[in-house]
Amino acid sequence: MERKFLMILTLAASTGAAFATEIPPSDVIFTDGAVEASLTGVAGDPENGRLIVGDKGVGNCVACHEISDLADVPFQGTVGPMLDGTGARWSEAELRGIVSNAKMMFDESMMPSFYRVDGFTRPGNEYTGEAADDSFAPLLDAQKVEDVVAYLTTLKE
């Protein structure tokens, strides 16, 4: 009894209050590829989402997608469709689903799952070529997913 109580205390202390309502990757509920509920309950920041999408070291979405709004970011890839107007084509819930796990929306999609932690073949420790260790985490954390989704919804044309 006492030990359990202590564990809850330490957990709360280490993760912080803001994460109280965060949905962990394995608990995300997909409905026809879309995710209705916010992953954090905290509104996404589109400005930060814009940075994440263009940053090679974070979202690196431009590795595969072109986005006119990010014309200042050089070397945009052409593997996926252009994201101009994606906010008009898809609802917020659909975009949350696509970013969290695109394979739920597009069968066998080449797009990586940004909010998922299991089911990989030989997962590595980032780009070291070594096996994954305890630090293994989703490609984007829950709030970053929300920020990216908030940014995508602004891409109306």
Binding site: V62, A63, G77, F120
Partner: peptide, 22 residues
């Protein structure tokens, strides 16, 4: 393979001719 779940074929069979970043 990996956290990005990409095969050789994803890049070199399905997407040769396209750009992946630079």
């Amino acid at each position: 393979f990996g956290q990005l779940e990409l095969s050789c074929a994803n890049c070199h069979e399905e997407n040769n001719g396209r750009m992946i970043r630079a």
